[in-house]
Amino acid sequence: MNAFRLAGDMTHLISVLVLLLKIHTIKSCAGISLKTQELYALVFATRYLDIFTDFISLYNTVMKLIFLGSSFSIVWYMRRHKLVQRSYDKDHDTFRHQLLVLPCLILALLIHEQFTFKEVMWTFSIYLEAVAILPQLVLLQRTRNIDNLTGQYVFFLGAYRSLYILNWIYRYFTEPHYVHWITWISGLVQTLLYADFFYYYISSWKNNVKLTLPA
């Protein structure tokens, strides 16, 4: 495993831990989109169908379990925990799941490497992950005022995506036959979705002011 991939996985892990920590310690999910969290839970559930059939490494299995466990517990907290539930900004989090899930499912049925259940589900998860952040970005735009933890959560997620692109470039040049168009194009789309947010995040950090997004 190369350094970009490891750093990418670690920033992904940090983003999830930042979010769980926020929810668990201050019992608040203000500014967090439940829609995005449910989409991530679906992404991991459909991608890791191979968790008990294909063993890659202990690292791989443990990380998969962490991502599955954390994404489902975040959804549980936001839906079921009395205090956390109360801080959920339901009125602004109105993005419709179906608008993302259905097109991704259709695309996965049309464009995939192998027509098997596991492979189509895996491809679906790749497409869905690329757009799953959209409800979160829409919510941030609507509320405009972003607390530090929410900003850091999205920042680390974006860092994870950027590092994965470097990892793919590295693997392309160092490993024979390493060509994955589906993953690359989806990953690129996903990273571009963060570009706007990154711009405001970094400029607010540079000017040392609280992060706000334009309407």
Partner: peptide
């Protein structure tokens, strides 16, 4: 194409 290997990323 080894599927397990190509799906080794998270």
């Amino acid at each position: 194409l080894d599927k397990a290997k190509s799906h080794d990323e998270l």
